[in-house]
Design a binder for these strands. Structure first.
Lengths: 161, 161
DNA sequence: GCCTGTTATGTGATAATATAACAATTGACA
DNA sequence: TGTCAATTGTTATATTATCACATAACAGGC
C-alpha cells in the first residue's frame, strides 16, 4: 500500500520519516544483495534531508566536504546506483534527484513540484500510470518506464497566494 | 479533436504531415499575432523533418550552416519561443525538442519515446492528465503544467524484438 | 591465508547543455 | 521619419554530465 498523503507537503517528524526510509532501504538492500557502500548510503541520507530535489553538484559538494572524492563521477555514480535500484528518483524537470519515499512499493510515482518552495512530493501514480499504459496500448507502444512530473503550487504556497 | 493515432509510428506521407502542421501554425500565428520570424519558422521546419526530438545544438548547427547566427542563444531563443507558444515541446528526458503536432488542440500531450529508433510520438494525454489532476487534487496541489514522458518500444521496434 | 576476477572509488580531462549580458538590428506604428 | 520595443547577433560563462584510466576494496575458489 502506498501512502495516500505524501509527507512532503505536511508537517511531520522528519527524523522519523528519514529513519523509516533508511530502515526500509537497509532491509531491502540485504534482501537483494545491494551493496550500500559509504558513499551510496551517505548520498541517500543527504537526499533525505529535505523533501527537495538535489542537483548532483550540490550532493558532490557535500560529499567532498566530508572527505569523499570531489569529482563529478563520485556523485553521479552513487546517484545512478540509487536510481537504478529504485532508492532515488531522477527529476528530469529539475536536473536533480530525490530520495524514493517508498523504496519497496509504488513503482509508478508521480512527482509534484512546488514552483515556489521547491518541495517535491512523490505521490502514488498508479492511476496515472494506468492511463498512460492505456494510451500506449492504443498506439501499440510497449511501455517500459515513464516519468510524470507536475509543476504547480503545493498546498501551503497555494494558500499563501 | 486529437488524432487517435499519432503519425510518428506509422507510415505516412511526411511532406503532407509537415505541411499540415505548418499551415496550422501559420493560421494560428496570424490569429494570435505571433511573429514567425525566419529563424523561428526555420527551427520549426527543422524540428518537423522527422518525428524525433532534436537537441538545441543539433538545431543550432543547422541554423549556422544556413547563415543564421552560430551561437547557442540563437537556437535556444527560437526554441523557447516555440515552446512558449505551444508550437513545440521540450522533452526533458532527452534534453531535446520536438515539434507540436497539434498546435491548436490537445494541450496535455503525453510523449512516447522509442528507445531503439528514437522516434517520439505525441499522443493525446487527456486521460493521463485527468488522473494526474485527481492525484494532485487529493494532496491539495494546484497543478499548472506537467510533463509525461514514456520510454519503451514503438510498434515497429517491438515487433522486430 | 592468498590469488584472481569483479565491483567500486578516485582523479583528471572534457563533453554536452544552457544562460547572462550587452550591442546591433529590425519592425511597428505614431 | 523618429522612436520604442522586440528580435537577433556575439562574447563569455555557468551548469550538468560523461569518458578514460588508475587504484583500491571485495568475494569466492582454492
Amino acid at each position: 500500500m502506498t501512502d495516500a498523503q505524501p509527507t512532503a507537503f505536511h508537517d511531520h517528524d522528519h527524523d522519523d520519516c528519514t529513519q523509516d526510509v533508511l530502515a526500509k532501504v537497509d532491509r531491502l538492500a540485504s534482501d537483494r544483495g545491494l551493496r550500500m557502500t559509504p558513499v551510496r548510503r551517505r548520498v541517500l541520507e543527504i537526499l533525505l534531508e529535505g523533501h527537495r530535489a538535489m542537483g548532483a553538484y550540490e550532493v558532490l559538494d557535500r560529499l567532498a566536504a566530508e572527505g569523499f572524492g570531489a569529482q563529478p563521477p563520485v556523485a553521479y555514480r552513487a546517484l545512478e546506483f540509487l536510481v537504478e535500484h529504485g532508492l532515488a528518483h531522477r527529476i528530469r524537470r529539475l536536473n536533480a534527484f530525490a530520495p524514493c519515499m517508498h523504496p519497496e512499493i509504488d513503482h509508478a510515482p508521480a512527482f509534484f513540484i512546488c514552483e515556489v518552495c521547491n518541495l517535491v512530493a512523490e505521490a502514488p501514480g498508479e492511476a496515472v500510470r494506468g492511463a498512460l499504459d492505456a494510451a500506449g496500448k492504443a498506439i501499440g507502444f510497449r511501455l517500459k518506464r515513464a516519468n510524470v512530473e507536475a509543476v504547480g503550487l503545493c498546498p501551503n504556497c497555494a494558500e499563501a497566494a
